[in-house]
């Protein structure tokens, strides 16, 4: 079903719940995947993903169709991830490096990464990046979004995003070459 039809169902009071259920089914995997790469832990990703869709539900009536539904949802998801990580830091009075260390510890404990050392190392390299740069890298590298879509999601210019991604790649390759 196209976004236009989904929105029509959601905006009709009689089919609102059904339409929103379809929206969740259509976007849940992409939203969860994006969130999970940012917060690493599944339980945290579950909480944040739910919050993303609750916010989407609250704000859907104000959604203007001059942007794609997907980029709008992605923008909410990115903001929720950044807010979550900031709160986590404040709650435990942690600097950036310490929360990265904490998340790296979670990577070591993940069964799906056991035996795949190169992927684990790549993920640890990503944790050395600032949160916003990590989000930019994930959107470009893993989700293969266009710079134009990323620009709408992050409200950042295409040039700045290209530079941010280029620097991220450089840092990651330095990390991978370190040992």
């Amino acid at each position: 079903m196209e976004d236009k039809d989904l929105l029509l169902k959601i905006r009709n009071p009689e089919t609102r719940n059904y339409g929103f259920n379809l929206l969740v089914r259509a976007y849940q995997q992409r939203v969860y995947g994006h969130v999970r790469k940012m917060v690493i832990d599944h339980d945290d990703a579950d909480d944040v993903t739910q919050e993303v869709f609750i916010k989407v539900h609250k704000a859907i009536n104000g959604f203007r169709e001059d942007s794609q539904l997907f980029t709008w949802i992605y923008r909410i998801a990115t903001n929720e991830c950044l807010t979550f990580l900031n709160k986590k830091r404040k709650r435990f009075f942690l600097p950036i490096e310490d929360i990265s260390g904490q998340l790296a510890g979670k990577l070591d404990a993940m069964p799906e990464l056991s035996g795949d050392e190169i992927q684990k190392k790549l993920q640890k390299a990503l944790l050395t990046l600032p949160d916003k740069q990590r989000a930019v890298f994930n959107m470009k590298y893993f989700d293969e979004l266009s710079y134009e879509d990323m620009s709408r999601i992050t409200s950042t210019s295409v040039g700045a995003l290209k530079a941010s991604f280029h620097h991220a790649v450089k840092k990651i390759e330095d990390y991978l070459s370190a040992d």
């Binding site: 969740v24 849940q28 599944h42 609750i54 799906e112």
Partner: peptide, 23 residues
């Protein structure tokens, strides 16, 4: 290039219902 993170089995079957219940 691959996404190393996997959701638990059945997670995406349950999530729409959980969100629906919350809203």
């Amino acid at each position: 290039k691959k996404d190393p993170f996997k959701a638990p089995d059945g997670y995406f079957d349950q999530l729409p219902g959980i969100i629906q219940a919350r809203i």
